[in-house]
């Protein structure tokens, strides 16, 4: 059975939802200015952009329903299997940020490098050397030379 892509419908609706949120916010901030302050209010520009975002979002979604959506991910089996790798890469990046926030930046970078190289099929030897070099360069260039502190 041919897989029907819904990518453009989802993206179009995302533009509509974002637009509605900004439109509601803009209206509550005030479209027109107060008597003491002439000119458009703080909500004017966000509301204006929101209207266009809703309009074009609906256009994209309706065209996708009528004519079909762009296939976001294709049908190549090798590419589709890379989707799992994408999910893993994203999860590791979130882990890196969590480790940085709760523990230490360098622990996060070490975990990121080790896990990424493992996922990309690099040898353990390369993995360890690469991670050590990256950590060393970051420490030397940023902390020692540029005095950038990675503490949160």
């Amino acid at each position: 059975m041919e897989r029907k892509s819904k990518g453009d419908i989802i993206v179009g609706l995302c533009f509509v939802v974002a637009g509605l949120a900004f439109l509601a916010g803009g209206v509550s901030l005030g479209i027109s200015g107060k008597a003491a302050v002439p000119g458009p209010g703080p909500g004017f520009f966000p509301a204006l952009c929101a209207v266009f975002s809703i309009f074009f979002g609906l256009w994209i979604a309706i065209e996708a329903v009528k004519k079909g959506s762009v296939d976001f991910f294709g049908t190549d089996p090798e590419q589709l299997s890379n989707g799992k790798l994408i999910a893993f890469v994203t999860a590791v990046f979130i882990l890196f940020m969590a480790l940085w926030y709760f523990l230490n930046f360098y622990v996060g970078v070490a975990a990121l490098c080790l896990l990424y190289n493992f996922a990309f099929g690099r040898t353990w030897k390369f993995n360890l050397i690469f991670s050590a070099v990256i950590l060393g360069l970051l420490y030397f260039i940023f902390e020692r030379l540029l005095s950038v502190q990675f503490t949160i």
């Binding site: 179009g12 533009f15 974002a18 637009g19 900004f22 520009f45 966000p46 952009c49 929101a50 266009f52 975002s53 074009f56 979002g57 256009w59 994209i60 065209e63």
Partner: peptide, 13 residues
């Protein structure tokens, strides 16, 4: 162009 316009207005928002 429609996708470009939607992106442009999203950036403005």
């Amino acid at each position: 162009v429609v996708k470009g316009m939607a992106m442009g207005f999203a950036g403005l928002m």
